[in-house]
Amino acid sequence: MTPGEKMAFLKNYLGDCQRCRLSQSRSRIVFGEGDPSARLMFIGEAPGFHEDREGRPFVGKSGELLTGMIRGMKLSREQVYIANVVKCRPPENRNPSPTEIQECRPFLQKQIAVVQPEIIVTLGLFATQTLLGTEGRIGDLRGRWHDYQGIAVMPTYHPAFLMRDEAKKRPAWEDLKMVMRRLGLG
């Protein structure tokens, strides 16, 4: 099967997931989108209000900022793959529980296995801690390379955080410039 067929199979297997309590309050599952053969993958925490309504990752205000960041890297959303740690919106935008993460983890792991990106950019503390299995602070983890099963990982600030703290936009851009250099994008 092609990566696209594998991703479609995985999405179909997820189906109308009822594996955890997040299914009780969501409108739509937000599986992920983009190029299933992308060299670069972005992973966030969980869908928000707008993502839950549209069934697509990063489509609200923070999504607009992420799209601008991707364009700044001379790429488009169609050239990268975007996913979240969990596929359903937690009520009140709370962090997903360990049980909810555990139920969704196999799907994220399979998405990563299908895409086989050269680089993963984790967006925010929660996604970074979940993927890397660490309890470090994002300020301490960002700006340097990490490893996830042989894949280079660059943690950076979540776009929603960048909208609240404009001073962090420059460090986030420095993180993305390191990704660009590693991918040979300039």
Rank of each mutant, 00 (worst) to 15 (best):
L141T: 02
T134M: 02
S97H: 10
T130V: 14
T128L: 08
L131T: 09
I138P: 01
N84M: 01
Q111K: 15
V115I: 14
L132V: 12
I120L: 04
P98Y: 12
L123N: 05
R142H: 11
F126S: 06
P117K: 00
Q109G: 04
C88I: 04
A127E: 05
T99M: 13
I82A: 04
R105T: 10
Q102W: 12
P106E: 09
T134D: 05
L141W: 03
C88D: 13
V86I: 09
C104Y: 00
R142W: 06
T134S: 12
D140C: 08
P90N: 11
L108N: 01
I82K: 01
T122H: 06
Q111I: 15
G136P: 10
I112E: 08
T128S: 15
T99R: 14
R137C: 07
I119H: 00
Q102S: 14
I82S: 08
P98I: 11
C104S: 12
A83E: 02
F126I: 01
G136F: 08
G136A: 13
N93C: 11
K87T: 07
N95E: 13
I101V: 14
G139I: 07
V114H: 10
I101A: 04
R89G: 02
I112R: 02
C88T: 11
G139N: 13
V86N: 00
E100P: 03
R94F: 10
I120C: 09
Q102A: 15
Q116K: 15
L141V: 04
E92G: 01
T134I: 05
E100N: 02
P96W: 04
D140T: 15
F126M: 03
K87C: 08
D140Q: 12
Q111N: 11
I82N: 02
A127N: 00
I101S: 05
I119G: 01
G133K: 11
I120R: 00
K110P: 06
